[in-house]
Design a protein around this nucleic acid. Sequence first.
DNA 1: GAGACGTGGCC
DNA 2: TGGCCAAGTCT
Length: 288
Amino acid sequence: MSDLHEAILGWYDAHQRDLPWRRPEATPWGVMVSEFMLQQTPVVRVLPMWKAWMTRWPTPAALAAEPSGEAVRAWGRLGYPRRALRLHAAAAAIVEQHDGAVPDEYDDLLALPGVGDYTAAAVASFGFGRRHVVLDTNVRRVFARLLAGHEFPAPGVTKAERALAASVLPHDDSAAVWSVAVMELGALVCTAVAPRCDACPVAHLCAWRTAGRPTYAGPERKVQTWAGTDRQCRGRLLAVLRDADGPVHRSALEAVWDKPDQRDRALRGLVDDGLATQVGPDSFALPG
DNA sequence: GAGACGTGGCC
DNA sequence: TGGCCAAGTCT
């Protein structure tokens, strides 16, 4: 094992967080649910939701047996509620196509709704111990700095970047732990803002640090807009549906957004996306 | 490949 | 205070 691997695996062994989906008793389904919830969402906000979901829906079949609207409701304020819809659809596909067992093959995982390259690789690795390159925002940033000497990776994953990550992926059964260890290093030490190089186990090997931590010079990174957007409007409307016991009247939706055109557009969008249904001339609800 | 898609916390 | 950021996916 190289210095690089020994340093990062050793650091992980000593400093990893105790997260329930990483425990030995965690099931592949538990891993999969955690990966959906963790997409673009901090661990601290996922923890309570994951526990609630695993208690209520300990298997794909349990989730698939309920209406998709219940998944959306139980998603609460985690954000990106289409993830709840897709996780529900993925559970249904697992029941129908895989006898209720989360598939262990990358290609089978990738075919599920809401599962892209990252999630397929993560579930195969962390749920089944298989060997895959796992590229999330943490891993990409760690390798950009450590191996390429850049503060941040390029906006999109490049072939060279994937090849570089593959070149350091262990060939033995430590590959999955290696991937989660690099992710953890990115989450706790090699952070986007104010990285803690003084606490980094591979600072002595880091190309970015050796180069004097040059500031990012690549293409401008996209900034999310928020206030006043359709996205904010959708969030307001869906919150009303989610917090209601049954169908709500149009007036209850009108009360939370004062621009009629935008409100109507957002509501149509929610219906088109399957996050809401119109159940009467002027009433709406979560999908059944 | 750019843009849409939630939410909340931090410095 | 508000821009930035958090284990991405889909179109």
